[in-house]
Amino acid sequence: MEREQGSGEFVREPLGVAGRITAEESAPWPVAPGRYRLVGARACPWANRVIITRRLLGLEDAISLGIAGPLHDERSWRFHLDPGNVDPVLGIEYLREAYEKAVPGYDDGVTVPAMVDVASGKVATNDYAALERDLSTEWREFHRDGAPDLWPDAGEIDRIGEGIFDDVNNGVYKCGFAGTQDAYDRAYRALWDRLDALSGHLSDRRYLVGDTITQADIRLWVTLVRFDAAYHGHFKANRHKLTELPVLWAYARDLFQTPGFGDTIDFEQVKQHYYGVHTSINPTGIVPDGPDPSGWLTPHGRDELGGRPFGDGTPPGPPPGNERVPPLT
């Protein structure tokens, strides 16, 4: 998933199967309900972006969801939560098997999310950014009634999203996997400068772009929701906890309590993955018992800022029974 340059800076490896699934019938991978299985993991923020998008747009019947467990080894993400350690639709134990079917001798990173063609067992694409955009555009015919418009201002969403990706989504990894003090210090400063700017931006508006939830909010939120459970301690992104940042904490709780967001999160799997897999950072593999997640359900007060979460659309219904996560207690 990552490597270090001579500077000690974390660099995310290129995607290994960056295809597209489009509405063109002649496309190598055409849109077709029931053809593909989205493989994600509750632990992974990149997968979470696409899982939330699928939920909000109501594509559960068109695209099935497979969940890899939080633990994996050098062979890749593994379906160790499923009976017999095998995905019930794809019939594989390790996600690498689907990558190797797509690219014989595949030797790049095995990542989630991955959209897998069920019939052939091949990964069609693991390009999370293209997937979240294409689910909104190329799959429009199969959206639920009342699906929100997640791209009302694509230019502004991409502009703000670029900074979120560089300094926040990827920024916490740059802190955690830095190979030198200088590399860590640069990443740490960029992360907190960006979070401070985002806090200021959100101090008088409910959402990042316009008055509705957009893809920009999804991109930021998947890092915020994992911040105290993993990034603050495990990745040394520890100037403050999220719970100590009034604006961002309220913003994150607002979205957590919005259908399609909090109902995709399993904090135990998040901690099991980060603390259990990254042995170079946490060699003992000990998973912390805290923090207490019950605060995510406390009042946030953000509705006083106005806004219409789903615009002219409606909230999604409850997730399918086999996709539900444990409730917070």
Rank of each mutant, 00 (worst) to 15 (best):
residue 206 R to L: 00
residue 206 R to A: 00
residue 162 E to I: 12
residue 268 E to K: 07
residue 241 K to I: 02
residue 223 T to H: 08
residue 206 R to T: 00
residue 107 D to L: 07
residue 148 P to I: 02
residue 63 I to H: 05
residue 324 R to Y: 03
residue 292 D to N: 10
residue 194 R to A: 11
residue 70 P to Y: 09
residue 3 R to D: 11
residue 30 P to C: 11
residue 197 A to S: 15
residue 222 V to M: 06
residue 111 T to D: 07
residue 199 S to V: 09
residue 166 D to H: 13
residue 265 I to L: 11
residue 263 D to R: 08
residue 307 G to I: 00
residue 149 D to W: 03
residue 206 R to W: 00
residue 83 P to C: 12
residue 220 L to G: 01
residue 105 G to S: 08
residue 72 H to V: 05
residue 57 L to P: 01
residue 293 P to R: 10
residue 191 L to H: 06
residue 293 P to D: 08
residue 5 Q to H: 13
residue 180 T to Y: 02
residue 192 W to A: 07
residue 306 G to P: 03
residue 173 Y to V: 03
residue 17 V to P: 03
residue 255 L to T: 00
residue 282 N to S: 03
residue 58 G to S: 08
residue 11 V to T: 13
residue 39 V to W: 01
residue 221 W to N: 00
residue 17 V to M: 13
residue 235 F to Y: 13
residue 225 V to E: 08
residue 172 V to W: 07
residue 271 K to R: 15
residue 288 P to T: 11
residue 261 F to N: 02
residue 283 P to M: 07
residue 286 I to Y: 06
residue 91 G to Q: 05
residue 250 A to I: 06
residue 329 T to R: 13
residue 21 I to F: 08
residue 256 F to D: 01
residue 302 R to F: 08
residue 242 L to Q: 05
residue 37 R to T: 13
residue 136 S to F: 06
residue 325 V to A: 03
residue 278 H to Y: 10
residue 184 Y to H: 15
residue 5 Q to C: 08
residue 154 A to P: 06
residue 235 F to Q: 02
residue 81 L to R: 14
residue 239 R to N: 09
residue 280 S to P: 00
residue 178 A to S: 15
residue 201 H to G: 06
residue 11 V to M: 05
residue 315 P to W: 05
